[in-house]
Amino acid sequence: MQAYIAGFALGFSLILAIGAQNAFVLRQGLRNAHVFAVCLTCALSDAVLIAAGVAGFGALAKAVPGLEGVMRFGGAAFLLWYGARTLWAAWKGGEVLEAGEGKAGLRAALLTCLALTWLNPHVYLDTVVLLGSVSAQYADKLGFGAGAVSASFVFFFGLGYGARVLAPVFRRPGSWRVLDLIVGLTMWAIAGKLIWM
């Protein structure tokens, strides 16, 4: 049980920071667009990565020359593009939260979600490398991994469905512009950190 709690606490603290993936889940929750599918995709992706880290894949990823650079620059390119798209939406404005409006198709939502997850090097650093390394300190590595996976499920579903509390605020176009501006700048900041780290 101690390993489970430690895994949950560390997993939750790592995922708590705002990032590209979390911002996307928040937007989907605010729009009430494919929330369950997006949250499940994020949580299951994390589960696969955490399992790989606990199983020792982090050491392998470090050992493959050039893999870290490819992940870093590929992720930065995607975040720059997505950030530019979001900043353009902030500049353009005019979006409001109304039922049934502004919803992209399920396929587009899931592809964006998968790209924001699997093309983000920070996800690998947090889930595979860091959680994998810390899990080695516990005799009950399975319990540690289960705790970290549980934290992902709790966080993503809490964020996706909890966003509805903010829905009244996002009935005003100005709120969307502010959110898009924050999300776009966050994406660019993360991309900048990836390029110059």
Rank of each mutant, 00 (worst) to 15 (best):
residue 169 V to W: 14
residue 30 L to T: 08
residue 151 A to V: 12
residue 118 W to C: 02
residue 144 F to E: 00
residue 33 A to E: 14
residue 88 W to P: 01
residue 121 P to N: 04
residue 129 V to K: 00
residue 2 Q to F: 08
residue 22 N to V: 08
residue 98 E to F: 06
residue 29 G to L: 09
residue 139 A to V: 13
residue 37 A to H: 14
residue 52 A to E: 05
residue 12 F to V: 01
residue 134 V to P: 00
residue 146 A to D: 01
residue 37 A to F: 08
residue 86 T to G: 05
residue 155 F to R: 03
residue 60 L to M: 13
residue 120 N to T: 10
residue 62 K to W: 09
residue 6 A to D: 02
residue 44 L to T: 15
residue 47 A to M: 13
residue 157 F to D: 06
residue 166 L to I: 13
residue 13 S to N: 01
residue 130 L to D: 00
residue 166 L to C: 11
residue 76 A to N: 07
residue 8 F to K: 00
residue 88 W to T: 03
residue 3 A to C: 07
residue 140 D to T: 01
residue 94 G to Q: 11
residue 44 L to F: 10
residue 58 G to R: 05
residue 40 L to R: 09
residue 109 A to F: 07
residue 24 F to K: 04
residue 135 S to I: 14
residue 86 T to M: 15
residue 87 L to G: 07
residue 182 I to T: 10
residue 146 A to H: 03
residue 85 R to A: 13
residue 179 L to K: 04
residue 96 V to F: 09
residue 63 A to I: 09
residue 166 L to T: 09
residue 195 I to D: 01
residue 66 G to M: 08
residue 122 H to E: 11
residue 139 A to R: 11
residue 131 L to S: 04
residue 166 L to R: 05
residue 59 A to N: 10
residue 6 A to T: 07
residue 146 A to P: 11
residue 35 V to K: 02
residue 94 G to H: 06
residue 45 S to A: 15
residue 47 A to Q: 04
residue 149 V to C: 06
residue 66 G to P: 08
residue 77 A to D: 04
residue 197 M to T: 15
residue 97 L to I: 01
residue 21 Q to N: 06
residue 134 V to D: 00
residue 48 V to T: 08
residue 76 A to Y: 02
residue 185 L to I: 10
residue 101 E to A: 13
residue 128 V to F: 11
residue 122 H to C: 03
residue 197 M to F: 08
residue 29 G to P: 07
residue 37 A to Q: 15
residue 123 V to M: 13
residue 162 G to I: 09
residue 143 G to H: 03
residue 191 A to I: 12
residue 78 F to R: 04
residue 188 W to I: 06
residue 126 D to Y: 02
residue 147 G to S: 00
residue 186 T to N: 14
residue 18 I to A: 05
residue 114 L to M: 15
residue 51 A to Q: 05
residue 35 V to W: 01
residue 35 V to C: 01
residue 109 A to H: 07
residue 97 L to S: 12
residue 57 F to Q: 10
residue 175 S to K: 12
residue 41 T to Q: 09
residue 82 Y to V: 02
residue 154 V to Y: 08
residue 185 L to Q: 09
residue 28 Q to V: 04
residue 115 A to G: 14
residue 165 V to Y: 14
residue 14 L to D: 00
residue 127 T to E: 04
residue 168 P to W: 12
residue 127 T to D: 07
residue 162 G to H: 14
residue 197 M to D: 14
residue 170 F to I: 08
residue 28 Q to E: 11
residue 111 L to N: 04
residue 97 L to C: 12
residue 131 L to M: 13
residue 84 A to I: 10
residue 176 W to K: 10
residue 98 E to Q: 14
residue 9 A to W: 00
residue 113 C to Y: 05
residue 11 G to M: 00
residue 139 A to K: 11
residue 65 P to G: 04
residue 72 R to P: 06
residue 122 H to Y: 13
residue 84 A to Y: 10
residue 83 G to T: 03
residue 108 A to Y: 05
residue 171 R to K: 15
residue 55 A to D: 04
residue 100 G to R: 10
residue 56 G to K: 12
residue 39 C to T: 13
residue 33 A to G: 06
residue 107 R to M: 15
residue 117 T to K: 07
residue 74 G to N: 08
residue 72 R to H: 03
residue 112 T to D: 10
residue 169 V to G: 05
residue 192 G to I: 03
residue 141 K to T: 12
residue 165 V to A: 15
residue 152 S to D: 01
residue 94 G to E: 10
residue 94 G to L: 08
residue 82 Y to Q: 11
residue 76 A to G: 07
residue 73 F to Q: 05
